[in-house]
Design a protein around this nucleic acid. Sequence first.
DNA 1: CAGTCACTCGCACGGTGTACAACTGGCCGG
DNA 2: CCGGCCAGTTGTACACCGTGCGAGTGACTG
Lengths: 246, 246
Amino acid sequence: MPAEEQSFPSVWARPRRRRREQPALSQEQIVSEALQLLDSEGIDALSMRRLGNRLGAVATAVYWHVANKDELIELVIDEIYGEVEVPEVDDPAAWREAAAATARSLRSMILRHPWIVSVLDEVALCYLGPNLMRASDRMLGVFTTAGFDLVEADQAMKSLVAYVLGMAASEAAMLTRLTRSGRTEQEWVESMSATAEEAARPYPRLHALYAADPFSDPERVRVDNFGYGLDRVLDGLEARRAAAKN
Amino acid sequence: MPAEEQSFPSVWARPRRRRREQPALSQEQIVSEALQLLDSEGIDALSMRRLGNRLGAVATAVYWHVANKDELIELVIDEIYGEVEVPEVDDPAAWREAAAATARSLRSMILRHPWIVSVLDEVALCYLGPNLMRASDRMLGVFTTAGFDLVEADQAMKSLVAYVLGMAASEAAMLTRLTRSGRTEQEWVESMSATAEEAARPYPRLHALYAADPFSDPERVRVDNFGYGLDRVLDGLEARRAAAKN
DNA sequence: CAGTCACTCGCACGGTGTACAACTGGCCGG
DNA sequence: CCGGCCAGTTGTACACCGTGCGAGTGACTG
């Protein structure tokens, strides 16, 4: 450890030999530290060197435990998939609330980890991550007990997830940019409104919308918008379910 | 131009003086070249140095015309938003087909430019891009002539777009990885199926799904899945429209 | 006591975005 | 005609990145 030079070198001051039965690094530890880094400082803050330093090691030491940065990110992504809660249901009538709860849980997860939007291209290939598989299996359960056959349950699940992903992703992207600029959501919306209304002048309906909207309580607006679309998607699925039943 | 050293220097061979009335670079040219680079080689191929070289210039010259790489990407994104076609409708009954056509057009655009998934975090902040604004305004038109009031039209639009974005993004991510691996979609699915079925063993419904699915014609499956969810979303919106009318 | 093995470190390579200062050449006012 | 301005381009430089490779290093094993 040449980094920490002893100003008073001595055998006694020298750090005790590290025990080898517990290696300094482990994959879980690395993944967990990477997640912390991502949550607190965003995607740009995650470099192998910084990650190594945080763990009291050097960048290349990390490569013993993960193949490369992409694989590390895949691991972190599956880790946070473990946070989404999917209820197990047996009453067919309970399907809708179960699906809605899942959707809300997924949205919360994304908003808790908004950097996920920057790695969405890797998200789609985590098919085999255990946490994603568990969640998928449970969602399939929700839709099959609702009465859908298996392949339609899969389609229903994919549709719902796509909606949530799309909606939450755009929310998360905005929040990320916001955080980076250091302003609050309210401040940003207010500073934006004049510019937006001006820029929208050539587009009548957009302009009318911006003029009508009081630009207040942006978080509430986001929640309402998410809820609106969620209701429509679930309505559409419910209609299909009712039709298939007869 | 020290890069191209003349092996036979001569006044006559010397390139003619560049006219200054037409500068060598322009923002449109830069954006267009960046788009070509992205489409043909993906996000990793886009570096300021390569882009400069392609235009017969040096990386830093590009910075005269665009503020930085992020801004460049925003410009490219708005450029491709210009490709999505949104019909203008006046017959309220035509709203559904118009919305569906828009959704399909947006999906095609994303699949034509799959690298967009890697920059989704920037996509969400192109609010002021002219092409996006034009498309948004026209979509608002579709929903208002359908009978929605302006703020609900906005919610409906955002919901539809979120669905399409989520669905197409996961498709595009898969296709990107595929292209990178150099295999066809069919080959990939076939090589995947055994592994996937094995990995899904602990998850009964997922395992049953993989076992049932013949893993054939993956593109058709993607199209069907997209259409299924699109129909559900539109059904949900139609139901809401009908209810509001009375 | 030698060797092996799991793990860590140091160094190096070839990239990246972009700040900064120097240059170039056409134009315009004096 | 000429000096200065200024849009546009260049070269250099900095601090960083992911990661391949070889050399330790210490605990355990035969």
